[in-house]
Structure formats: structure tokens, C-alpha cells
Amino acid sequence: MSQSKKEMMNRALSAMTINIGKNGINENVIDEIKRQLDSNEIVKLKFAKNIARDKDKFIDDIVSQTRAKLIDVRGHVAVIYKKKP
């Protein structure tokens, strides 16, 4: 694991977690993720078990709509990062 990825994962331990429920993502969820990325740079996304099989599609959609970078996926949790402007 590269040094910067290690640092990111250490920061992710205390990052804001956004729960993605059975309804998946919508404009409000994307807006909240953008707000959290603007203030914290790193956000954890926790997917409900009943939508976890579709999480890769949701992650792709979130990353593209927020212009964030996917750092890690473990189980039902994804970590994304976007540098502050």
C-alpha cells in the first residue's frame, strides 16, 4: 500500500459516513455527498445489505457525479476522496 493511500485510510477512520439505503441514490444523496466532500475531503459510503449487490454501479455513479476518486471498498463500505478546491 502506498504511503498516500495509507494516510487516506487513516483519515477515513474518522470520516463522515453516509448510509445508502434501500432506495439507492438520488439527487439529495448526491448533494449531501458533495457537501461532505467539500468540507471533509474523505467520505465513507455504507451500503444497505439489500442493495449491496448493486453497490459497484452506485459507486460508479457517485464517483462520476461528484468527480471524486474511489480510494477503497471493503465489504459494504466504500471510501471516496475529493481534494478541496
Rank of each mutant, 00 (worst) to 15 (best):
E7D: 03
P85M: 13
N28S: 15
V77W: 02
Q36D: 10
F58I: 06
A52S: 15
A68N: 07
N23Q: 08
A78N: 09
K55Y: 09
A15E: 01
I25S: 05
I62S: 03
M9L: 15
A48F: 03
A12G: 09
I62L: 08
R67N: 10
M16P: 14
D54A: 12
N23E: 12
M1D: 07
Q65P: 05
A68E: 02
S39T: 03
D61E: 15
I71R: 11
A78W: 00
R11L: 04
L37W: 09
E32T: 07
I33T: 05
Y81P: 00
K5R: 14
S4E: 15
Q3T: 10
I71E: 06
A12F: 00
I51N: 07
K46M: 10
A12T: 02
R53H: 13
V73A: 01
R67V: 00
T66G: 02
D56F: 14
D54S: 12
N28K: 14
N10Y: 04
I80K: 05
S64Q: 14
K6D: 09
Y81R: 00
K34M: 12
F58E: 12
A12H: 01
M9Y: 05
N10S: 10
M1F: 09
R74P: 04
G24L: 02
G21W: 01
A15F: 03
I33E: 02
I18D: 07
I71V: 15
S2T: 09
I80R: 03
I25D: 04
P85W: 10
N10E: 13
D60S: 09
K46I: 07
R35W: 02
I51H: 04
N23Y: 10
N26V: 07
R11C: 03
D31I: 11
K57F: 14
R67S: 12
K34L: 15
S2P: 06
R74Y: 14
S2Y: 05
R53G: 11
D56L: 13
F58Q: 02
I42P: 08
K83G: 01
T17Y: 06
L37S: 14
M16F: 12
M16E: 14
D54R: 13
I51E: 05
A12D: 04
D56M: 11
G21P: 00
I18W: 06
D31P: 06
K49T: 10
K34I: 15
K5Q: 11
N40S: 11
I42R: 04
V29N: 08
I80D: 03
R74A: 11
Q65H: 05
G75C: 06
M16Y: 09
Q65R: 14
Y81M: 00
D60R: 13
A78F: 03
A68H: 09
V29L: 12
N19P: 01
D72K: 12
M8A: 01
N26G: 13
M1Y: 10
I33A: 02
L37A: 15
I80H: 08
M1G: 10
R11K: 11
M9D: 00
